[in-house]
């Protein structure tokens, strides 16, 4: 997305406009400032925000740096959920023992998110909160029916990822709220998450990607949720297509037709909407091949 806008601007980059910088001492401190200044923006890992500032796609009044708040990067099992604190970096998550045992697909997914130096700074919560339609984690949150935990002036609330993404970079976060963590339901018996994407260069944003939440019983796909990313303006759930697949198996033309009626494919610099539709259809096949392997 950023590259598209930058292309439209004729590839002219600039330096960030002026803003003030505030290092938040704790969550309450950050919430108070955010609640009182509509133009203030949270700074977590900065790996999406700084490119936007450098290119003046965004010019906030103040950056509220939450990156030094302690206690926001826990990765723990919380009942039937895997909880990941908002400030856990992509590198923290990839190296975590609990994640590798309970949600190994998350590690495979993060290997495709940017490059090591970016993963050392970029945070889990930042990626979820930003809601880039081409990003992997928002789609994963929707595919797994994760709960997003928000903290605001009136305390904490939890919202299901399916209700969190409203449109292009638009989420259900209120002015006075910040994301403090994400809760992924632990895998159930027979449940697998499979993931694949097509991109030009390892680590770049995908041209199209798919995360499938699959329930197997006696080695057959019993239930299926398909969530595409880098296809439309937010993670795209394709329930009709999933149902069709369960009924008829993989048929390129049928599934392509169904996807085109279900998802509003939006082309970008790397791939037209027609190409994304083709890639999305092929991705279903690639996922099924993985399942059979």
């Amino acid at each position: 997305m950023i590259r598209l806008i930058c292309y439209l601007m004729g590839g002219k980059y600039m330096k960030a406009a002026n803003f003030s910088y505030y290092e938040a001492k704790n969550i309450q401190d950050a919430i108070k400032i955010k609640a009182n200044d509509e133009e203030a923006v949270i700074l977590a890992g900065g790996q999406s925000l700084l490119p936007a500032l450098n290119m003046r796609l965004s010019s906030p009044s103040c950056l509220i740096d939450i990156s030094k708040i302690s206690g926001l990067n826990d990765i723990i099992i919380d009942g039937d959920y895997l909880f990941i604190g908002a400030l856990a970096t992509h590198s923290d998550v990839m190296r975590n023992e609990i994640v590798s045992q309970k949600m190994p697909c998350l590690i495979d997914i993060l290997k495709m998110v940017a490059h090591p130096a970016i993963r050392n700074k970029g945070t889990h919560g930042g990626s979820i909160a930003y809601g880039d339609p081409a990003a992997e984690l928002p789609a994963l949150a929707v595919a797994t029916n994760a709960e997003i935990i928000l903290s605001g002036q009136n305390g904490d609330r939890s919202i299901n990822a399916n209700d969190f993404y409203l449109g292009l970079f638009e989420t259900a976060i209120n002015q006075d709220e910040i994301v403090v963590g994400i809760k992924y339901p632990l895998l159930k018996q027979g449940q697998v998450f499979l993931f694949d994407e097509v991109c030009r260069r390892h680590g770049d944003y995908a041209m199209a990607g798919l995360i499938a939440n699959i329930i197997l019983s006696s080695n057959k796909v019993n239930d299926l949720k398909l969530v595409f990313f880098a296809t439309g303006d937010k993670p795209d759930v394709a329930d009709k297509t999933a149902k069709l697949f369960l009924q008829t198996g993989y048929d390129y033309d049928q599934l392509k037709n169904s996807l085109s009626s279900e998802i509003d494919f939006a082309g970008d610099l790397n791939s037209s909407s027609e190409m994304k539709l083709h890639l999305a259809t092929i991705l279903i096949k690639k996922i099924i091949n993985k399942l059979e392997a």
Partner: peptide, 18 residues
């Protein structure tokens, strides 16, 4: 890319104030 507290980071994506 430079090293910040032992980790590689993009110095264009970190504020000096950080």
């Amino acid at each position: 890319t430079i090293e910040m507290d032992g980790k590689a980071v993009r110095s264009c994506l970190v504020l000096a104030s950080q």
